[in-house]
Amino acid sequence: MLELKDIKLAYGSAQILNGVDLSVERGDVVSIIGPSGTGKTTLLKCINYLAKPASGTISFDQIKMDYQRPDKTAVQAIRLRTAMVFQQFNVFKNMTVLQNVMDPLVVVQRKSKEEAKEIALHEIERVGLTSRCNHYPSQLSGGQLQRTGIARALAVRPDVILFDEPTSSLDPELVGEVLKVIKDVTSSGITSLLVTHEMQFAKSISNRIVFMDRGVVAADGSPAEIFDSPSSPRLAQFLNSEYSFQ
């Protein structure tokens, strides 16, 4: 369904992505793990072209693009079929929870206000924020902000949802409420890509794990293959350090 090939990206002289290949099937829940700074976030952002690779190709069902020849319509088509949940939430600060979730439906999808509101209220209920509907971001906790971000992503009914470390800027006691919502989302069958440092969580919700290291995919397999019998010393070392940290 989604296939990235030979993605290369550099920021200045630093080569961040060094020929990444990744393919995702419909219904997959793929977790991307790896040391800090290896380009996991950057890779996710290449999919919706928030990060602009120097070369490589993407194909998303029938949409195809070569990053050396960026194509506005292809980028827009991909953006309309994906949604992203950000590490820093990035909830629109000038809008209430309800407006945040409704706005893309009204502005981008040109739905009527009534229809957008109905969909928005449904997704807000799903993430348990009904009582906070009319609150502004400045009045919400981190966990509530991230659940707003998830509701906004779900409301656009994306084919693929991209989670970029959705819990890593949360206070420890708020992580649980967000993981619960993500688990509910991923088990509903929507294709998901999740960058995370929550190893136990990745293991429990994913059907595939991708281990990234130094700008390439260093291992790719089922949770059992990756966690129980790591194929490379780098992976084993990484898993060890993550577990000892937790």
């Binding site: 950000f86 990035n90 629109f92 893309p104 981008v108």
Partner: peptide, 14 residues
Amino acid sequence: VDRGQHDAADSLGY
């Protein structure tokens, strides 16, 4: 204005 606000809007197809 936070860079993330641009990212969020762009990612949603604004």
